[in-house]
Computed example of a mutant assay.
Amino acid sequence: MIIGVPKEIKNHEYRVGLPPAAVRELGGHGHQLLVESQAGAGIGYSDADYGDAGATIVGSAREVFAQAQLLIKVKEPQAAERSMLTPDHTLFTYLHLAPDRPQTVDLLASGATCIAYETVTDAHGHLPLLAPMSEVAGRMSVQAGARCLEKSMGGRGVLLGGVPGVEPARVTVIGGGVVGQNAVAMAVGLGASVTVLDRNIEALRQLDNRYGNRIRTLCSTRDALEQSVIQSDLVIGAVLIPGASAPKLVTRDMLRRMANGSVVVDVAIDQGGCVETSRPTTHADPTYVEEGVVHYCVANMPGALARTSSQALSNVTLPFIVALADQGPVPALLADGHLRAGLNVCAGKVTHRQVAEAHGYEYTEAEPLLRQLQTH
């Protein structure tokens, strides 16, 4: 199979779909790798590195799209990339379609088979291809929040861990999943006063067992959430409903009652954000102030830590890419229900229930559609 790796073109996105080590692995399976020139340059991988790994270097994304059957990316295809998709393509990347109608419309029109990293599952009901980026984003959220609390960034001028004789910053983490767990780890490590909220008592129990009285765990009722948010210096939104838009848990009224210069980091922004006032920002212009609160809502946070993120992502995506390439997309999707859970759009149909509900499309069950395609 011909596997293509275009250079990412989203604002300040330096990650790459396949590092050279993964290219070498796929080449060992007999596949041809096409890599756009400079695809990995932002994180220290040269064209020569890819050439040494067995890839053919091509000069433009258009050449990659024209020749490749399986396209491996990191971020959702931008409008220029979507215009090059055809029914002969299988696209494997993060999509986050529920809050993004224009992308959904374009992918349906393309006829391509589009598999989203973020909805692939495992035997435990987890999201293994989302987890490494959630780990990076969770840890980075505290770094970003600490920076935004500095006066020069519009913040209150509060040091996250305080100093002897001065209390530390109060941090509220909304969500005890992978993002929340990693945010808690960083915030506790920096000496902040940490509260974490979730409706999953088992998740809270695990955090309580790990940190004891170094954190406060609360069942996420409206009252508990409101009181925690308005008393916080830093709020981290770490809410996820797989495949669906994030619920707006933090309201504008709550933000009005926070101290001026407080900070919100909405990690859920890829799925529309869990803060009412959130809107996507970029690494080039990451923050804005609304209701006196600094908002950090960068939609590709791990892109700032691109080398670590690319390697971590490739570690978990490579076995699925091998399966797609070795077996062919339709047989691989039929053989693996967990990979099939990642199929969001196929042959002009929406094959993920939450995406269909978000945009008012008819939901098409993936397995019968794939069996129909297999017979043609």
Score class of each variant (00 low, 15 high):
346 C>F: 06
202 E>Q: 14
240 L>T: 04
266 D>G: 15
243 G>T: 05
277 T>N: 08
147 R>H: 14
36 E>S: 10
2 I>M: 10
291 E>T: 08
172 T>C: 12
213 N>E: 05
42 G>A: 05
347 A>F: 04
20 P>C: 02
267 V>Y: 01
27 G>L: 01
274 C>L: 03
85 L>V: 02
120 V>H: 00
245 S>N: 12
58 V>T: 04
262 S>N: 06
344 N>L: 04
147 R>A: 12
126 H>D: 14
40 G>M: 04
237 G>T: 06
165 G>I: 02
305 L>Y: 14
166 V>L: 13
336 D>L: 09
51 G>P: 06
98 A>L: 10
157 G>E: 08
137 A>H: 08
298 V>Q: 04
343 L>E: 11
298 V>I: 13
253 D>A: 15
184 V>G: 09
66 A>E: 13
62 R>A: 15
106 D>T: 00
25 E>N: 09
137 A>D: 07
101 R>C: 00
147 R>V: 10
370 L>G: 13
344 N>Y: 08
163 V>T: 15
220 S>D: 06
181 Q>N: 10
332 A>E: 06
33 L>R: 05
31 H>Q: 07
41 A>H: 12
213 N>F: 00
255 L>I: 11
67 Q>F: 01
129 L>R: 05
91 L>Y: 07
182 N>Y: 08
195 T>H: 04
242 P>M: 03
148 C>G: 02
141 S>N: 13
25 E>P: 09
42 G>I: 11
142 V>R: 04
70 L>H: 05
110 S>V: 07
351 T>E: 10
286 P>V: 07
132 P>Q: 05
342 G>P: 13
217 T>G: 07
95 L>I: 04
153 M>A: 15
192 A>E: 12
100 D>F: 12
79 A>W: 03
277 T>S: 15
228 S>P: 11
81 E>S: 04
204 L>W: 02
151 K>D: 00
38 Q>H: 13
186 M>H: 04
321 I>E: 12
301 M>N: 14
135 E>C: 08
234 L>V: 08
311 Q>L: 14
302 P>C: 03
148 C>I: 06
38 Q>W: 07
